[in-house]
Every structure is written in C-alpha cells, then in structure tokens.
C-alpha cells in the first residue's frame, strides 16, 4: 500500500520516443525507473525523448536527479530530452533547480 508504485507507458514514432510516467518519483522508485528508462533509451536510441509527467502524483529531489541523468544519457547518444505537462507541484521543484535552463519544458498539465 505504501510502497511507491510506478508505471511507464511507451509510444514510438520514427525517431521520437514518448514515455508517460505514472505514480510517485522518490529515491525508492527512481532506482528502478532509471534502470527501465535507460534500457529503453539504449535499445531505441531516439533523437528525441519526451517524458510526460502529467500523471506523476508526487516528486521530490530524486526526480531532479532522475531527469538530469536521462538528460545526460540522451546527450551522450546524440539526442535531446524534453519534459512535457508537469503539474504545478512538479513544475515548482523543476524551477527551484533551474532545470528550465537546459531542459525543454512545455505544456502545463
């Protein structure tokens, strides 16, 4: 009941990979989210990865680490990361870290 559950929904079109994240992002869930995301990224090698955060119910600074890590991995394989539809809470924490300065963020949920 209290274990942080999450789920990923993946859509692919040409060089675009869309991943919608569901649930809570904390240090506990981020560890396996990171593994799962990296496996998909390295398999698909997209030019553009869009992470849809509209269904994230909770995120703390572990989410910032997760996003920064995927930003770096995408750059390594010659692609870009974009974040879409963060809710107001998530947006607040993204801004606190100044993430908008290097990651494209659009479409408030």
């Amino acid at each position: 009941m209290f274990s942080t559950d999450y789920r990923l929904e993946i859509k692919k079109r040409d060089w675009l990979l869309m991943v919608r994240l569901f649930g809570e992002i904390d240090h506990h869930s981020a560890v396996s989210m990171r593994e799962e995301l990296d496996r998909i990224i390295l398999k698909e090698r997209p030019r553009r990865l869009v992470l849809d955060l509209s269904c994230i119910e909770f995120m703390d600074s572990a989410g910032l680490g997760l996003l920064m890590g995927r930003y770096r991995l995408m750059r390594e394989i010659g692609g870009v990361l974009a974040i879409t539809r963060p809710n107001e809470r998530v947006l607040r924490i993204l801004h606190l870290a100044g993430m908008e300065r290097f990651i494209e963020i659009d479409g408030k949920a």
Binding site: A30, R34, S61, A62, L66, M68, A97
Partner: peptide, 22 residues
Amino acid sequence: EPLFTTDAAGERSGMGFTVMEN
C-alpha cells in the same frame, strides 16, 4: 548549499536541503 552532494554517482541532485528550506 543548492546542488551540493557527496553522492553524485547515486544520481543525487544536491537539492534536498533547498527543497526543505523552500
């Protein structure tokens, strides 16, 4: 301090205390 972390390998952001403060 914002962004300070001793655990960069663990993908920590160094923003925990900043979040608590804000």
